[in-house]
């Protein structure tokens, strides 16, 4: 009998987790659903959870987070784009909002949404072992020029933003690295560099942080316009004379046709959240960049990003029209 009661209680608890109330009214009169296209515990998930916890204070309504991982965000993008455009279903992106449509994964990109805010970017970066022979990016690139295809660099799978950042450097400087794919995304790269298995790795500062903090690896160049706040000593590529910028930015999206005043209300809440102390602390500790671009600034960025990724994907031979 006791056992029965325990199991019944467990089931009731689980049922409670899935219960979602539904009432109509002026925005926001009921909880907002926020769809994350990545698994619980991943980078997009953690950033979004911290952001939403702050945003709901300013929105005046709870934000219910639902993880719908699949195809690096593709599944969630489709679901958000098809949701009722009332602001009650929103979600987040990464750079894949621009790559998916040029690789034939899904036929939609940012133009199928109302962009609420761009709240974060994790730029690319090139890292080497602490005692590596290259002092800076210049020495590294010049060495690669002398020995094409010999310097090994760990990066993610073809078509990933990480890989494209490295290939951008290759194309701009007309050099060739020996790129080693990493199945687990870019996260394995820093360990491989620290263990001496590859010469370098392409990874966002947020990924390289723990081994950088441990003094095992050092940065050659970060692919952002300005230095990342959490890495004051890590030089950008630009300040070393290399015009290589690669962002992997995150936006909050609402379905196309969501009323302007609703998008504005959401922007105000998310902007306040991105500027909150909690979010700042979290992002700095993990080594991420905070942004607070509004709809116009975000659309401008995304249009540029589309052009950059389209050209890059054509150059590396991965461009494919979506059906």
């Amino acid at each position: 009998m006791k056992l029965k009661a325990i199991f019944l209680a467990a089931i009731l608890c689980l049922v409670g987790v899935f219960a979602v109330p539904a009432v109509a009214g002026e925005f926001p009169e009921r909880p907002v659903t926020y769809i994350i296209g990545w698994a619980t515990g991943g980078g997009s998930d953690l950033v979004s959870r911290v952001l939403c916890a702050e945003a709901e204070k300013h929105l005046g309504q709870p934000i219910v987070i639902v993880n719908k991982p699949g195809g690096s965000g593709a599944k969630a993008y489709v679901e958000i784009s098809q949701a009722k455009p009332d602001g009650y279903t929103i979600g987040n992106t990464t750079g894949t909002i621009s790559t998916h449509k040029f690789m034939g994964v899904i036929p939609i990109g940012h133009e199928a949404f109302e962009v609420v805010i761009t709240f974060n970017s994790d730029p690319g970066g090139l890292w080497v072992k602490k005692d590596a022979p290259w002092k800076d990016l210049k020495e590294f690139v010049e060495d690669a020029r002398k020995r094409p295809g010999e310097i090994t660099v760990a990066a993610s799978n073809p078509g990933s933003i990480t890989r494209l950042g490295l290939q951008l450097l290759e194309l701009k400087e007309n050099v060739k690295f020996k790129i080693a794919s990493q199945s687990g995304g870019e996260s394995a790269g820093p360990s491989l560099v620290a263990g001496g298995h590859v010469d370098a790795c392409q990874a966002a500062p947020v990924t390289a942080k723990s081994l950088y903090d441990a003094g095992e690896i050092r940065p050659l160049g970060i692919m952002s316009e300005t230095r990342v706040e959490a890495f004051p000593d890590a030089p950008t590529c630009m300040e070393q004379g290399y015009d290589v910028v690669m962002h992997n930015a995150r936006q909050v999206l609402a379905p196309k046709g969501t009323p302007k005043e609703v998008v504005d209300k959401l922007y105000a809440a998310f902007k306040a959240a991105a500027e909150s102390e909690t979010f700042k602390k979290f992002m700095n500790e993990s080594g991420s960049m905070i942004l607070t671009w509004n709809r116009e600034e975000s659309t401008e960025f995304l249009t540029k990003q589309d052009a950059q990724f389209k050209e890059l994907l054509q150059q590396v031979g991965l461009y494919k029209e979506a059906k």
Binding site: P69, G70, G71, A74, M103, I106, S156, G159, S181, Q182
Partner: peptide, 20 residues
């Protein structure tokens, strides 16, 4: 799922769910 080395989908039959 998606092959990490060639970006080719294996046995996914066009399903986004099976891509991962």
């Amino acid at each position: 799922g998606m092959d990490n080395f060639t970006n080719v989908s294996r046995f996914t039959f066009g399903s986004i769910e099976l891509m991962s």
